[in-house]
Amino acid sequence: MSIVSVQNISKSYWRDSLEIPVLSNISFEVPEGEFVGLMGPSGSGKTTLLNLIAGIDRPTKGSIIVANTDVTKLGESQLAKWRSSNVGFVFQFYNLLPVLTAFENVELPLLLTKLSKKERKEHVEFVLKVVGLADRIHHYPKQLSGGQEQRVAIARAIVTDPTILIADEPTGDLDKTSALEILNLLQTLNSEFKKTIIMVTHDPRAAERAHIIKQLDKGELT
């Protein structure tokens, strides 16, 4: 059963009166619990496709169905609500809020839920333990290494138990050892916690962890 269904997606940007096509008629399915790697050269439209699936951008044409919801038909507020419970984001540069501690960063998505303070605390402590940072709970991002920051970002991405995990070059800013740790963590989340992961990467070692590889070139699946 597919958890993500991308159907005839096209996306163009307009620069003045010039239309710049980024994606053309993309269609594919992501089965539940899969680890999908999106690969391709720079400018091939990988991140754009990822953004469309994550509901932070809108296609020019086509539809994207995630867990039976057509995200292209949701309004601005509905989409924000949908993202908060269905999508976990892992960014290349971690995107942690520097003024908040690891705990507070991970707690952020839970502030959009109805969980009590106590329940939020339990959730945050659990996921920080999962990513191996139980002892760094009150550290600020600047007090953590790059690998640790990315692990906090992963904890933030999974704390709401989202339908899909979206990772955009999650090892792109890390050294070899840290990158390996992050890839192992993502693999564990996929294999043990059955998280569906869609990851954009240039790194062939990262791509090896994915079960399905989708290659994009000039906005088309190859």
């Binding site: 994550a54 932070i56 601005e76 507020s77 924000a80 609500k81 949908w82 993202r83 908060s84 419970s85 999508v87 984001f89 960014f91 540069f93 995107n95 809020l97 520097p98 952020l108 998505p109 959009l112 933030r156």
Partner: peptide
């Protein structure tokens, strides 16, 4: 970037 992140996480 922080604003973009907050919005992506679901903040309106």
């Amino acid at each position: 970037v922080e604003i973009g992140t907050l919005r992506a996480l679901g903040f309106r």
